[in-house]
Nucleic acid binder design. Structure first.
Lengths: 123, 123
DNA sequence: CTAAATGTTCAATGAACGTTGAACTAACGC
DNA sequence: GCGTTAGTTCAACGTTCATTGAACATTTAG
Protein backbone atom coordinates (compact mmCIF):
# COMPACT_ATOMS: atom_id res chain seq x y z
CA UNK A 1 0.00 0.00 0.00
CA UNK A 2 1.99 2.91 -1.30
CA UNK A 3 1.12 6.07 0.54
CA UNK A 4 1.60 9.42 -1.14
CA UNK A 5 2.60 12.55 0.64
CA UNK A 6 0.62 15.67 -0.20
CA UNK A 7 2.42 18.15 -2.38
CA UNK A 8 0.77 21.18 -3.96
CA UNK A 9 0.93 21.20 -7.76
CA UNK A 10 3.26 23.79 -9.25
CA UNK A 11 0.32 26.05 -10.02
CA UNK A 12 -0.98 25.81 -6.48
CA UNK A 13 2.23 27.00 -4.87
CA UNK A 14 1.30 30.27 -3.16
CA UNK A 15 3.69 33.11 -2.45
CA UNK A 16 2.47 33.96 1.08
CA UNK A 17 2.74 30.30 2.09
CA UNK A 18 6.24 30.04 0.62
CA UNK A 19 7.38 33.19 2.41
CA UNK A 20 5.88 32.06 5.69
CA UNK A 21 7.52 28.66 5.38
CA UNK A 22 10.91 30.26 4.74
CA UNK A 23 10.56 32.73 7.58
CA UNK A 24 12.17 30.40 10.08
CA UNK A 25 15.87 29.91 10.78
CA UNK A 26 15.71 26.13 10.87
CA UNK A 27 13.84 25.88 7.58
CA UNK A 28 16.15 28.41 5.92
CA UNK A 29 19.09 26.28 7.04
CA UNK A 30 17.45 23.20 5.55
CA UNK A 31 17.02 24.77 2.14
CA UNK A 32 20.50 26.30 2.27
CA UNK A 33 21.99 22.86 2.88
CA UNK A 34 19.77 21.21 0.27
CA UNK A 35 20.77 23.82 -2.29
CA UNK A 36 24.48 23.44 -1.57
CA UNK A 37 24.10 19.71 -2.05
CA UNK A 38 23.26 20.23 -5.73
CA UNK A 39 20.64 17.99 -7.29
CA UNK A 40 21.26 15.13 -4.87
CA UNK A 41 18.48 14.16 -2.50
CA UNK A 42 19.06 14.24 1.24
CA UNK A 43 17.40 12.48 4.15
CA UNK A 44 15.80 13.99 7.25
CA UNK A 45 18.52 12.36 9.31
CA UNK A 46 21.14 14.57 7.68
CA UNK A 47 19.51 17.60 9.35
CA UNK A 48 19.55 16.39 12.93
CA UNK A 49 22.25 18.94 13.75
CA UNK A 50 19.45 21.50 13.35
CA UNK A 51 17.04 20.04 15.88
CA UNK A 52 15.33 16.99 17.29
CA UNK A 53 13.82 14.29 15.10
CA UNK A 54 10.37 15.62 15.89
CA UNK A 55 11.33 19.19 15.07
CA UNK A 56 12.91 18.23 11.75
CA UNK A 57 9.85 16.20 10.83
CA UNK A 58 7.68 19.22 11.59
CA UNK A 59 9.78 21.65 9.57
CA UNK A 60 10.10 19.27 6.63
CA UNK A 61 6.33 18.91 6.54
CA UNK A 62 5.95 22.70 6.47
CA UNK A 63 8.38 23.00 3.56
CA UNK A 64 6.59 20.21 1.71
CA UNK A 65 3.11 21.65 2.25
CA UNK A 66 4.29 25.04 1.02
CA UNK A 67 5.65 23.43 -2.18
CA UNK A 68 9.29 24.22 -1.52
CA UNK A 69 10.61 20.67 -1.30
CA UNK A 70 9.56 17.30 -2.64
CA UNK A 71 9.61 14.30 -0.31
CA UNK A 72 9.59 10.69 -1.40
CA UNK A 73 9.94 7.44 0.37
CA UNK A 74 13.07 5.32 0.17
CA UNK A 75 12.71 2.39 2.49
CA UNK A 76 12.48 3.69 6.02
CA UNK A 77 13.88 7.02 4.88
CA UNK A 78 12.56 10.11 3.19
CA UNK A 79 14.46 11.68 0.35
CA UNK A 80 14.17 15.45 0.11
CA UNK A 81 14.78 17.58 -2.96
CA UNK A 82 14.27 21.26 -3.67
CA UNK A 83 11.47 21.98 -6.17
CA UNK A 84 13.75 24.28 -8.13
CA UNK A 85 11.97 24.17 -11.46
CA UNK A 86 8.49 24.57 -10.03
CA UNK A 87 9.55 27.52 -7.91
CA UNK A 88 11.43 29.15 -10.77
CA UNK A 89 8.33 28.77 -12.93
CA UNK A 90 6.04 30.33 -10.35
CA UNK A 91 8.36 32.98 -8.92
CA UNK A 92 11.25 33.68 -11.28
CA UNK A 93 14.52 34.52 -9.56
CA UNK A 94 13.04 34.12 -6.11
CA UNK A 95 14.59 30.86 -4.95
CA UNK A 96 18.04 31.74 -6.21
CA UNK A 97 18.07 35.02 -4.32
CA UNK A 98 16.82 33.42 -1.12
CA UNK A 99 19.24 30.52 -1.35
CA UNK A 100 22.19 32.83 -1.94
CA UNK A 101 21.35 34.91 1.11
CA UNK A 102 20.41 31.90 3.22
CA UNK A 103 23.70 30.14 2.47
CA UNK A 104 25.63 33.31 3.33
CA UNK A 105 23.80 33.37 6.67
CA UNK A 106 24.91 29.92 7.82
CA UNK A 107 27.91 29.07 9.92
CA UNK A 108 30.40 26.60 8.37
CA UNK A 109 29.37 23.95 10.93
CA UNK A 110 25.78 24.07 9.76
CA UNK A 111 26.74 23.63 6.13
CA UNK A 112 28.95 20.71 7.07
CA UNK A 113 26.14 18.18 7.36
CA UNK A 114 26.68 14.45 7.96
CA UNK A 115 26.71 12.04 5.03
CA UNK A 116 23.70 9.87 4.32
CA UNK A 117 23.84 6.18 5.25
CA UNK A 118 24.65 3.78 2.46
CA UNK A 119 21.17 2.39 1.97
CA UNK A 120 19.88 4.65 -0.80
CA UNK A 121 18.09 2.87 -3.62
CA UNK A 122 16.29 5.73 -5.40
CA UNK A 123 19.83 7.20 -5.40
CA UNK B 1 10.00 67.02 20.35
CA UNK B 2 10.68 65.11 17.20
CA UNK B 3 10.06 61.42 17.70
CA UNK B 4 11.89 58.90 15.60
CA UNK B 5 10.47 55.61 14.53
CA UNK B 6 12.71 52.59 14.95
CA UNK B 7 14.19 51.26 11.75
CA UNK B 8 16.89 48.61 11.60
CA UNK B 9 20.08 49.76 9.89
CA UNK B 10 20.72 48.20 6.49
CA UNK B 11 23.21 45.77 8.02
CA UNK B 12 20.73 44.71 10.68
CA UNK B 13 18.03 43.68 8.23
CA UNK B 14 17.62 39.94 8.78
CA UNK B 15 16.38 37.48 6.17
CA UNK B 16 14.08 35.43 8.43
CA UNK B 17 12.43 38.61 9.71
CA UNK B 18 11.97 39.91 6.16
CA UNK B 19 10.46 36.62 4.99
CA UNK B 20 8.13 36.43 7.98
CA UNK B 21 7.01 40.02 7.45
CA UNK B 22 6.23 39.32 3.79
CA UNK B 23 4.40 36.08 4.54
CA UNK B 24 1.06 37.81 4.87
CA UNK B 25 -1.40 38.72 2.13
CA UNK B 26 -2.09 42.20 3.44
CA UNK B 27 1.57 43.08 3.77
CA UNK B 28 2.37 41.64 0.34
CA UNK B 29 -0.39 43.81 -1.09
CA UNK B 30 1.09 46.87 0.62
CA UNK B 31 4.52 46.34 -0.89
CA UNK B 32 3.04 45.49 -4.29
CA UNK B 33 1.17 48.79 -4.29
CA UNK B 34 4.15 50.73 -2.97
CA UNK B 35 6.37 49.22 -5.66
CA UNK B 36 3.90 50.02 -8.44
CA UNK B 37 3.80 53.59 -7.22
CA UNK B 38 7.46 54.06 -8.16
CA UNK B 39 9.64 56.16 -5.88
CA UNK B 40 6.74 58.22 -4.55
CA UNK B 41 5.84 57.91 -0.88
CA UNK B 42 2.36 56.81 0.14
CA UNK B 43 0.32 57.29 3.29
CA UNK B 44 -1.27 54.66 5.51
CA UNK B 45 -4.65 56.05 4.51
CA UNK B 46 -4.11 54.92 0.95
CA UNK B 47 -4.18 51.31 2.12
CA UNK B 48 -7.52 51.36 3.93
CA UNK B 49 -9.02 49.22 1.18
CA UNK B 50 -6.86 46.44 2.65
CA UNK B 51 -8.14 46.61 6.22
CA UNK B 52 -9.11 48.74 9.19
CA UNK B 53 -7.03 51.67 10.38
CA UNK B 54 -5.79 49.56 13.26
CA UNK B 55 -4.87 46.65 11.04
CA UNK B 56 -2.94 48.84 8.59
CA UNK B 57 -1.08 50.47 11.45
CA UNK B 58 -0.14 47.02 12.72
CA UNK B 59 1.04 45.74 9.35
CA UNK B 60 2.98 48.91 8.57
CA UNK B 61 4.79 48.57 11.89
CA UNK B 62 5.73 44.98 11.03
CA UNK B 63 7.12 46.01 7.66
CA UNK B 64 9.04 48.86 9.26
CA UNK B 65 10.51 46.72 12.04
CA UNK B 66 11.64 44.13 9.50
CA UNK B 67 13.42 46.84 7.50
CA UNK B 68 11.26 46.57 4.40
CA UNK B 69 9.80 50.05 4.42
CA UNK B 70 10.81 53.41 5.77
CA UNK B 71 8.23 55.52 7.59
CA UNK B 72 8.50 59.22 8.24
CA UNK B 73 6.19 61.81 9.62
CA UNK B 74 4.48 64.39 7.47
CA UNK B 75 2.11 66.38 9.61
CA UNK B 76 -0.59 64.07 10.88
CA UNK B 77 0.34 61.53 8.26
CA UNK B 78 3.03 58.93 7.76
CA UNK B 79 4.83 58.65 4.48
CA UNK B 80 5.90 55.15 3.51
CA UNK B 81 8.65 54.18 1.09
CA UNK B 82 10.19 50.87 0.13
CA UNK B 83 13.81 50.45 1.27
CA UNK B 84 14.82 49.28 -2.20
CA UNK B 85 18.52 50.07 -2.03
CA UNK B 86 19.02 48.62 1.44
CA UNK B 87 17.23 45.42 0.53
CA UNK B 88 19.09 45.08 -2.75
CA UNK B 89 22.36 45.55 -0.89
CA UNK B 90 21.53 42.88 1.69
CA UNK B 91 19.65 40.38 -0.50
CA UNK B 92 20.44 40.96 -4.18
CA UNK B 93 17.55 40.23 -6.50
CA UNK B 94 15.22 39.32 -3.69
CA UNK B 95 12.90 42.32 -3.56
CA UNK B 96 12.48 42.48 -7.32
CA UNK B 97 11.44 38.87 -7.53
CA UNK B 98 9.00 39.17 -4.65
CA UNK B 99 7.51 42.40 -5.96
CA UNK B 100 7.03 40.95 -9.43
CA UNK B 101 5.19 37.93 -8.07
CA UNK B 102 3.27 39.95 -5.49
CA UNK B 103 2.02 42.42 -8.11
CA UNK B 104 0.94 39.54 -10.35
CA UNK B 105 -1.04 38.15 -7.41
CA UNK B 106 -3.18 41.24 -6.87
CA UNK B 107 -6.59 41.94 -8.33
CA UNK B 108 -6.89 45.15 -10.36
CA UNK B 109 -9.08 46.68 -7.64
CA UNK B 110 -6.35 46.29 -5.06
CA UNK B 111 -3.78 47.95 -7.27
CA UNK B 112 -6.19 50.81 -7.91
CA UNK B 113 -5.57 52.54 -4.60
CA UNK B 114 -7.02 55.98 -3.70
CA UNK B 115 -4.92 59.10 -4.26
CA UNK B 116 -3.28 60.80 -1.30
CA UNK B 117 -4.81 64.03 0.00
CA UNK B 118 -3.18 67.26 -1.14
CA UNK B 119 -1.43 68.11 2.11
CA UNK B 120 1.99 66.64 1.52
CA UNK B 121 4.92 68.88 2.36
CA UNK B 122 7.84 66.48 2.41
CA UNK B 123 6.83 65.96 -1.23
C1' DC C 1 -9.21 77.67 20.90
C1' DT C 2 -11.92 74.14 18.76
C1' DA C 3 -12.70 70.64 15.54
C1' DA C 4 -11.22 67.54 12.06
C1' DA C 5 -7.83 64.40 10.10
C1' DT C 6 -4.50 60.78 10.62
C1' DG C 7 -2.56 57.31 13.06
C1' DT C 8 -1.16 54.79 17.44
C1' DT C 9 -1.86 52.19 21.63
C1' DC C 10 -4.28 49.04 24.55
C1' DA C 11 -6.69 44.90 26.09
C1' DA C 12 -9.14 41.04 24.52
C1' DT C 13 -9.83 37.24 21.55
C1' DG C 14 -9.07 32.98 18.89
C1' DA C 15 -5.84 30.87 15.76
C1' DA C 16 -1.39 29.33 14.40
C1' DC C 17 3.43 28.50 15.67
C1' DG C 18 7.53 25.84 17.40
C1' DT C 19 9.19 22.65 20.90
C1' DT C 20 9.02 18.63 23.85
C1' DG C 21 8.71 13.57 25.02
C1' DA C 22 6.17 9.43 24.57
C1' DA C 23 4.03 6.33 21.69
C1' DC C 24 3.54 4.64 17.23
C1' DT C 25 4.39 2.94 12.17
C1' DA C 26 6.83 1.13 8.34
C1' DA C 27 10.59 -1.06 6.14
C1' DC C 28 14.97 -3.24 6.37
C1' DG C 29 18.80 -6.70 8.01
C1' DC C 30 19.69 -10.94 9.82
C1' DG D 1 10.25 -13.63 13.53
C1' DC D 2 12.99 -9.93 16.01
C1' DG D 3 15.36 -6.08 16.63
C1' DT D 4 16.99 -1.82 14.41
C1' DT D 5 16.57 2.24 11.68
C1' DA D 6 14.04 6.27 10.19
C1' DG D 7 10.58 9.02 10.61
C1' DT D 8 5.54 10.33 12.05
C1' DT D 9 1.80 11.37 15.14
C1' DC D 10 -0.09 13.02 19.33
C1' DA D 11 -1.06 15.85 23.34
C1' DA D 12 0.66 19.47 25.98
C1' DC D 13 2.82 23.71 26.66
C1' DG D 14 3.86 28.61 26.24
C1' DT D 15 4.54 32.09 22.45
C1' DT D 16 3.46 34.91 18.77
C1' DC D 17 0.08 36.38 15.33
C1' DA D 18 -3.85 39.02 13.20
C1' DT D 19 -8.07 41.25 14.20
C1' DT D 20 -11.40 44.08 16.75
C1' DG D 21 -13.21 48.30 19.09
C1' DA D 22 -12.40 51.87 22.33
C1' DA D 23 -9.52 55.31 23.89
C1' DC D 24 -5.78 58.28 23.02
C1' DA D 25 -2.19 61.47 20.73
C1' DT D 26 -0.61 64.76 17.40
C1' DT D 27 -0.85 68.01 13.88
C1' DT D 28 -3.41 70.89 10.76
C1' DA D 29 -7.38 74.00 9.46
C1' DG D 30 -10.34 77.57 10.47
Amino acid sequence: MTEYLDHPTAEDIALPAVLTALGDETRLAIIAILARNGEKAMTCGQFLQLGSKTAISYHVAKLREAGIIHVRRDGTRRLLTLRRDDLEHRFPGFLDSVVTSAVAMQTPEVLDYPAAPETARGM
